[in-house]
Simulated scan of single mutants.
Amino acid sequence: MWISKKQLSSAVIIASTLAPVASFAADDTVEVKVGGFIRADYGDGDRYSEEQGEDRLGVTKAALAAQSTYKNVTGVLVFGTEILTDGDEDADGNVDVKDAFIVLNNVGDSAVSFSVGAQPLLFGLKPEGYPGDHSIQASIEYGAGGLFATSNQAGPAIISWVDFGEFTLRGGVFDLNSTYDDVTFADFDDDGSSVSDNLFLQLRGTNIAGTGLYGVIGAESIFVDPENDGESITTVGLGWTNDVFDISAEFQQIDEAIIEAGGIALDDDETYLIVEASVKANDKLSFYADYSEADEVEFETFRFGVDYLYNKFTVLSAEWSQDEFDDGDDIDSIDFRIALKY
């Protein structure tokens, strides 16, 4: 049984092109699928430092995924790497395990499924895809401006979901911060992060009543430090799609302690507003635009892009984006990508 996009992440995006490579006869059939993608990028603009020549070249994401299924149990393993010239120490070409988890589908022939292991949380209206794959440049909910990436969370987790036709109820426990190394930890009579400190629940609707409407409402509690061990994130989003258009808006509220843990001081809780639109001109050509805002930090992102389906497995993209800071200089760039999914 293949796993739906709304349940998993990078391995799922690869899913549509994976091909069986091995199986065994009789009732012990094990289906194995492999696949992956490579995204080669070039960007130019003042979002890239002068020290790096004000441009960026390389592979922003490359992944190889393997999925094996026996009856209703599926294992997913995803390796990935990044190789870039922008000075990012993490983009050095080292290969890492990005996802590794086990899925039990429709346990006991019920509507309930589970996944256990290192995996994305898929929190928010549009969290699917490999981390950072919301376009070429990240928007606020994917970590632009150094803000907390609510839609990009991944780590060891136990997640369960129940499908009710056009609605899915999904939730779980996780531990993204299993140790707390700050020297001030000794000042608190409290434990570090545990799964009881990190949990989420959300309800997602798809093509509601056959209208093309989709939406999400969800809440999350996470451990920040011993003084802030149950800080909240909430989200509500609504969108509409058909064969040509996709329009959506999402509102997220993030406790100020979560943002401040990233080194940004706030006077109140942060709120994100994310508005997105796309139009499919024909079978090969589509355009998109989006706007996102972090109210307390006073930071905005704008992105305008075009995707061209060169062939069934290859997409050419171009995007202009700008980040605007109320208390600093704006930065922008134009970026180009060729993406191969296999």
Rank of each mutant, 00 (worst) to 15 (best):
W2T: 11
W2C: 08
W2K: 10
K5T: 13
K5F: 07
K5M: 12
K6C: 01
S10F: 03
I14V: 14
S16R: 13
T17C: 02
V21F: 13
S23V: 03
S23F: 09
F24L: 12
D27L: 06
D28S: 13
G35T: 02
A40L: 05
D41A: 03
D41T: 08
Y48T: 07
Q52W: 02
D55P: 06
V59S: 02
K61H: 12
A63H: 00
A66W: 04
Q67R: 10
S68H: 05
K71F: 09
L77A: 14
L77G: 05
G80K: 05
G80E: 13
G80P: 05
D88P: 00
D92K: 03
N94D: 15
D96V: 14
V97S: 04
V97K: 06
A100W: 03
V107H: 07
S110G: 08
S113H: 07
V116I: 15
A118Y: 13
Q119A: 10
P120V: 04
L121C: 06
F123S: 07
G129N: 11
P131C: 10
S135I: 02
S139H: 13
G143R: 06
G146K: 08
F148S: 01
F148L: 06
F148T: 03
Q153M: 15
Q153A: 12
A154H: 08
G155M: 10
P156F: 11
A157C: 09
I158E: 02
G165T: 06
G165Y: 03
L176G: 08
N177E: 13
T179A: 11
Y180H: 11
V183L: 11
V183E: 14
T184M: 13
T184N: 15
F185H: 07
D187K: 09
D187V: 01
D190N: 14
D191T: 13
S193C: 12
V195D: 06
V195I: 12
D197K: 04
D197P: 03
N198F: 04
L201M: 11
T206P: 00
V216H: 09
A219D: 04
A219F: 05
E220H: 13
V224G: 04
P226H: 09
D229H: 10
S232D: 15
G237W: 01
V244T: 12
V244R: 15
F245L: 14
I247Y: 08
D255G: 11
A257R: 14
A257T: 06
A257E: 11
E260H: 02
G262L: 15
L266G: 05
L266I: 06
D267L: 10
D267S: 14
V275F: 06
A277D: 04
V279F: 05
A281Q: 07
S286R: 09
S292E: 08
E293W: 14
T301Q: 11
R303C: 00
F304N: 03
V306G: 00
Y308F: 14
L309P: 00
L309W: 00
Y310L: 12
T314C: 05
L316A: 10
S317A: 15
W320A: 06
S321G: 15
S321Q: 10
D323L: 03
D327N: 14
S333W: 00
D335W: 00
I338N: 02
K341Y: 10
K341S: 12
